[in-house]
Amino acid sequence: MSDVKWGMVVDVDKCSGCQACVIACMAENNIPINLDRDFKENRSIAWIRIERYWEGEYPDVKARFLPVLCQHCGNAPCEPVCPVYATFHNDQGMNIQVYNRCVGTRYCANNCPYHARYFNYRRPTWPETYNNYLNPDVTVRDRGIMEKCSFCVQRINAATRIAKRDGNEDAIAGLQTACAQACPTDALVFGNLNNPDSQVSQLYNDERSYVLQESIGTQPNIRYLKKIDEHAAAEAHAH
């Protein structure tokens, strides 16, 4: 299995900002329901979030959307600063958060250039009727620890088990994270970067692809595809 390197490509051009990925992630990963209060206090938790930027002056404005999740950096700033090894790197290119080991110093969150790490200020609660909806494969995080996108590690583990049982790689080939699965425009593509035939590895090397905040040198396993802006392209031609 070590020949696998999980990665993702985010096509900014395709993203419509619908937030389906956010909801899918919450359902999959037992993220507590963000209340009004949480947003006002800036304590909401969303492993993937859609950042919305306005471009231009009113009335000629455009909304730009940028889905941001943990970039699963190859050279992650969050890792060396953790005193208890609660976050580390595995051999499949993923950045792993170990909830049990976390003591909540929040240093990793400070050092994450993508703001991709979230802290549980409160003990998570759900309305009683929701209790049976929680995903049994995912730990519910108690207060006082960090959490972040895990690339749906529970799905990866399950697929690996099935692949081992069946003796073929079909389960792994069809693997999707919750966000990629839910994306109606296929803006999020997840897969094995080491497989040259996979859609993700082809998009990964697309000429439009770029790395978020490349100057920090984090070498992430997630790349973005540039917005195709006809207006800007026309302008560039004119010059």
Binding site: N75, P77, P80, S215, I216, G217
Partner: peptide, 9 residues
């Protein structure tokens, strides 16, 4: 050395 920023390396 610690921050491993490319321009500082």
């Amino acid at each position: 050395w610690y921050a491993r920023l490319p321009h500082e390396q």
